[in-house]
């Protein structure tokens, strides 16, 4: 089954952190995952809009203008964003870590309004999209930031940065461009039997049926089927 819509794609990744207040352990394969996704989506006919790595990846690209960010011109001006760096979840807030300050060293999910303009799907391939699968925790982290976003894709707890997962972005892009469901493909591609990287996909919906339908069936072709209100979350994970 092929895809009939064109998707605008943006990726951001951080391997090298500045040795200042933004300092985190350097990573090695974030570019491979993100750029692999970017180039594969491009090779399958989708529009490559931005690929920002290391110092070029900015906190403001995710943070909503209400909180001093510029998300509406970047992450929320494309349909699909793939982000890889460090991630940490504390007090039901996911923070993404950046190489240097562009306002701040990290972007916090309580300052996001994902999908308020164009964004439909967000991958956070670093750690701790959620810490566990307690529904109260999933709800506390994701009802607030999902403001039109169809689906949030990431990991339960931590994930690995290693050479044998460097093709994750490419594999995932190929699957969804073949017409596979977005949640199913992510949960399948990102899970690791070897080291227990536990993958999760969280879909939003106006109603229970809407959220479940998206979780179970949504493909890239659902780009323009808007989530009119995030009243429900439906998730799928492997563990």
């Amino acid at each position: 089954m092929s895809i009939h819509v064109n998707v605008r794609v943006g990726v951001e990744w951080v391997n090298k952190f500045h040795d200042d207040s933004c300092k985190q352990n350097n990573l090695e394969y974030c570019d491979d995952q993100a750029v692999g996704f970017y180039n594969t989506m491009g090779s399958r006919g989708h529009t490559k809009v931005f690929n920002w790595g290391d110092d070029n990846a900015w906190e403001t690209d995710f943070t909503h203008p209400n909180f001093g960010g510029d998300s509406l011109n970047w992450t929320d001006d494309v349909h699909f964003v793939f982000f890889v760096s460090h991630g940490g979840n504390n007090s039901n807030i996911l923070s993404l870590s950046f190489a240097k300050k562009h306002n701040s060293c990290s972007s916090r999910s309580d300052k996001w309004r994902l999908g308020s303009k164009k964004l439909k799907w967000l991958v956070s391939a670093g750690c701790e999209t959620v810490l566990n699968t307690d529904s109260a925790h999933i709800a506390a982290v994701w009802f607030g930031p999902m403001k039109g976003l169809h689906m949030m894709l990431g990991y339960i707890g931590s994930s690995h940065d290693s050479w044998w997962t460097d093709d994750l972005g490419e594999d995932f892009a190929n699957d969804i461009c073949d017409g596979d469901t977005i949640a199913g493909s992510w949960v399948d591609c990102a899970y690791s039997f070897w080291v227990d990287d536990d993958s999760i996909a969280i879909a939003a919906g106006e109603t229970r049926d809407d959220a479940i339908n998206r979780r179970d069936h949504e493909t890239l072709d659902w780009r323009d089927l808007d989530v009119r209100a995030t009243n429900w979350l439906a998730w799928k994970y492997k563990r």
Binding site: F193, R208, N231, W235, K236
Partner: peptide, 21 residues
């Protein structure tokens, strides 16, 4: 035998006190 992994689904409404799985 190495391990068994489960594929789970869950849902929760914004005003709900608990979800299902």
């Amino acid at each position: 035998f190495l391990k068994i992994v489960r594929l789970l689904v869950g849902e929760r409404a914004i005003e709900a006190k608990e979800g299902t799985e």
